[in-house]
Design a protein around this nucleic acid. Structure first.
Lengths: 216, 216
DNA sequence: CTGATTGGATAGTTACAGTATCCAATATTG
DNA sequence: CAATATTGGATACTGTAACTATCCAATCAG
C-alpha cells in the first residue's frame, strides 16, 4: 500500500508517518520508484505499536527507538535485554551512588534477589522514598501482602513465555534467531504493554472493594 | 524560612519555586513585609510532594493541581473524589462511546463491579486493545491469575485506610473535616504514589523469577 | 549607609512531538 | 497524451510544557 493508505488505515497523519520514518522508528517502505514506496501490514502493525508505546506506556520517541531496537536486534542474553528494556520505561531515575537502603531492605525482607545494578531497584528506592516523605511509608506487613501477590503473577508470566524462553534447561544454542526474537518480543512488550493492564486492573480492584464496602 | 533556604533545603531552584507559586500549586508564604515571606515545613513537604508527583508518578502540572486540589478541598463523597483522582493519573484516555467490550468481558469474568463511568474502565479497554494488537492478548487464564493476585492487594489497601475511611458502618457525619481530609489524602496519594512501588516490585519479581530459573 | 536579598512581574529558553510547505519526479485519469 | 494528483524527501515552522533568567523597586542585614 502507499503512504496515504497507511495513514488512512492507521489513523495517523501522513506528516506524522514521515516524522517516524525520519526518526528511524518506522522502517522505510520498499521503493518502487522515485516517488513510490510500498508499505505492508508489518508497517501498519509497527505503527500501531508505536502509538501504544507512546500514548499508553507513555514512552518518549527516543525510548521507543530503544525498545524497538531491542526487539529488532536482540542481545544474546535475554536477561540483559530485559534490563535494558526496563531502563527505557518510566519512571526515569538515576542511581544515587550504589546505596539503595530502602529497596535493599524491602527486597531482602521478601527474600528476592537483590541486585543494585537493576534499574527497577533504583525505581523502587525512589518510589519508597516518595511514599515515606508523603507520610504513608510501606510497612513490612504491606510489603508482605504485595510480595505474596506479585511473585506468583511474575511466575505465571515467565512460565508462559514462548518456547520456554527463560528456561535454564533449554540450551540457548538450540534456539534459532526467530525463536529468540519471539522470546525477546514477548518479554519486552509484555513488560511495556502489560503494566498498563495491571495498573488498570489494580485501580478497578480498589473500586470494586470500595463499592462492595459501601454496599452500593 | 525564606525562599532561598526553602530552595536550598529542597534542592529546587528559587526560580522553579516561584514558578510553582505562580501556578498555584504551592501556597504563598506568610508575608512579613513587601520583600519577605515566611515558609515552613508544610511548604517544604508540599514541594517534595510536587516533585514526587511530577517525576515519579509522571503527572503534568495541571494534573498535580487537580490532585492537590482534591486533597485540599475534598468532596463529601470519597468515592467520587477517588474517581476524579484516577482521572488525573496517566494514561490519559478518553471513553470511546460507552462500549468497552474487552474491559467489560474481563471485569465480568472476574465478577467485579463493572461501571463504564470509571476512568479505570476506559484505561483497561485501551490497554487490552494494545496487547491484543501487539499479538499478546490477555487470556482468561492469565486474567484469573492477575485478578486473584490483585484483589487481595486492594482488600489490604482499603482495610488499612485511616479511620476506616471507606466503611459503610461508620456514619460519615461522625467524622470531622480533619479525619475526612486524612482519608482522602491517604486514598489519593496512595493511588498516585503506591503505583510506582507496585510497578517496581512487579519488575523486580520478574527479575527474581528469571534469575532463579537461570540458576544465577 | 550600603550592598545583598527578596517578592513579583515579565520575558526568554529548551525540549519534544509533531505539522506544514516546497519541490521535482512520477502516477493516474479523462 | 495532456492535465491533475500524489509521492518521497528535505526543510522549516508551530505549539505546548516546564522551567530559567532578567529586571526592578523595596527592604533587610551588617
Amino acid at each position: 500500500m502507499r503512504i496515504s493508505e497507511l495513514a488512512r488505515r492507521s489513523g495517523v497523519p501522513v506528516a506524522t508517518i514521515k516524522f517516524y520514518l525520519r526518526e528511524g522508528i518506522l522502517p522505510a517502505g520498499e521503493a518502487r520508484g522515485a516517488t513510490q514506496a510500498d508499505y505492508d501490514d508489518g508497517h501498519l502493525n509497527r505503527l500501531r505499536l508505536i502509538r501504544s508505546l507512546a500514548e499508553l506506556a507513555g514512552l518518549p520517541i527516543a525510548q521507543i527507538k530503544t525498545v524497538l531496537g531491542l526487539i529488532d536486534h536482540p542481545d544474546a542474553d535475554l536477561f540483559t535485554t530485559l534490563g535494558k528494556a526496563i531502563s527505557a520505561l518510566p519512571p526515569y531515575v538515576e542511581a544515587i551512588g550504589d546505596e539503595h537502603p530502602r529497596a535493599r531492605a524491602a527486597i531482602e525482607h521478601l527474600g528476592w534477589t537483590y541486585d543494585e545494578t537493576f534499574p527497577a531497584t533504583w525505581q523502587l528506592e525512589r518510589a519508597l522514598a516518595a511514599v515515606e516523605e508523603a507520610g504513608i511509608p510501606l510497612t513490612d506487613e504491606r510489603l508482605d501482602a504485595y510480595g505474596a501477590a506479585l511473585h506468583p503473577m511474575a511466575e505465571y508470566d515467565v512460565a508462559g513465555a514462548p518456547g520456554g524462553a527463560i528456561d535454564a534447561d533449554a540450551p540457548a544454542t538450540d534456539r534459532g534467531a526467530a525463536a529468540r526474537s519471539a522470546a525477546v518480543r514477548y518479554a519486552v512488550l509484555g513488560t511495556a504493554l502489560y503494566e498498563p493492564v495491571v495498573v488498570a486492573l489494580r485501580r478497578l480492584a480498589h473500586q470494586d472493594v470500595a463499592a462492595r464496602r459501601l454496599g452500593a
